[in-house]
Simulated scan of single mutants.
Amino acid sequence: MSSAADLDLARRLADLADAVTRARFRAHDLHVTSKPDRTPVTDADTAVEDAIRTLLAQERPDDAILGEERGGTEATNARTWVIDPIDGTKNFLRGLPIWATLIALVVDGTPQVGVISAAALGRRWWAATGHGAWTSEADGTQRPISVSGVDELGNAYLSTTHLGSWTEHHSRSAYLRLVDACWENRAFGDFWQHVLVAEGAIDLAAEAVVNAWDVAAVQVIVEEAGGRFSDLTGAGDHTLGSALSSNGLLHESALDQLRSG
């Protein structure tokens, strides 16, 4: 199966997801429950994942699927579709438009296709190995994207997600060291900060804790945009539980600042 065919399918899956999420965003009858880790899940999350799984069963019946809501296992020596039906569910619940569906195809442990579709923003980002990274604007305009050329931390724009996660999962002081070394910082959070790195709007995005479905699509998009993705030790693996996206030029300097202690 060619990467172009898989990317085309991933984009169709994103179209399907967008139809569900647009209909349920800000709905008055949205049903919300909590998972064991107390993170929220809505009927839109499960509906999106179920719709994607149904189409994949028709189009790629031999492929494995790992989804945030319905589970599964990422096959290390085969093809696995890795799905986050709504990344940014807390924003979705509060009526904030910063959320997206994340779809990745991982082949032999490496993300090779990624699509991130932010329906409420009218934005989408996608990439396939060897084909570059792209985005579409709300008016439908498509363009290739690439990371920034900033090469010093003192000139860098940094983002993270919830600051409290650094205390629990890594080191708050280490993250604040990186903050102090950079020019500017914000907490754009979730998928948003990573695609901002990919399109060169910011230079670094760091997360102390992630799941595979949070960053599999991110990895291929950032890398195809010319950047670098790793966990907080520098390993380029989306399954290791943390994430650092950068323009590549700043990656090692950022890792130096983030070392615990």
Score class of each variant (00 low, 15 high):
Ala119Asp: 11
Ala57Gln: 10
Thr129Ser: 06
Asp151Trp: 03
Arg94Trp: 01
Ser117Cys: 12
Gly200Val: 02
Gly95Ser: 11
Asn247Lys: 00
Arg124Met: 15
Leu204Gly: 00
Arg12Tyr: 12
Leu255Met: 04
Trp125Glu: 10
Phe191Leu: 03
Asp84Arg: 05
Ala4Glu: 15
Asp256Glu: 14
Thr89Phe: 10
Leu249Thr: 00
Ala120Lys: 11
Asp37Lys: 11
Val113Met: 02
Thr135Ile: 04
His194Glu: 08
Glu74Asn: 08
Phe229Pro: 09
Arg12Thr: 15
Ser2Leu: 01
Arg94Ser: 13
Asn77Lys: 09
Ala128Ser: 07
Ala128Leu: 03
Gly71Asp: 11
Thr33Pro: 03
Gly67Ile: 09
Leu153Asp: 01
Thr239Val: 05
Ala216Met: 03
Val218Asn: 02
Thr89Ser: 14
Ser148Ile: 01
Glu207Leu: 13
Asp18Met: 09
Glu207Gln: 11
Gln257Pro: 00
Arg38Ser: 15
Gly95Glu: 11
Val107Asn: 06
Ala10Asp: 13
Lys35Arg: 12
Asp29Asn: 07
Ala181Cys: 06
Ser230Val: 01
Trp99Met: 11
Pro61Phe: 10
Trp166Glu: 07
Thr73Glu: 09
Thr21Gln: 14
Asp29Ser: 11
Ser117Gln: 08
Gly132His: 08
Val215Asp: 07
Leu13Ala: 14
Ser3Lys: 09
Asp190Val: 14
Thr33Glu: 12
Thr54His: 09
Leu178Val: 01
Gly226Phe: 07
Arg123Met: 15
Leu121Asp: 12
Ala201Ile: 10
Phe188Ser: 12
Thr46Pro: 08
Ile221Lys: 00
Gly226Tyr: 02
Thr161Ser: 13
Val107Ile: 10
Ala187Trp: 02
Leu13Cys: 14
Gly130Ile: 10
Arg26Gly: 13
Ala206Tyr: 03
Asp18Arg: 10
Val82Asp: 05
Val147Ile: 05
Thr233Arg: 03
Ala216Glu: 02
Thr233Phe: 03
Ala118Leu: 12
Leu105Asn: 10
Gln142Asp: 14
Ile145Gly: 05
Val179His: 01
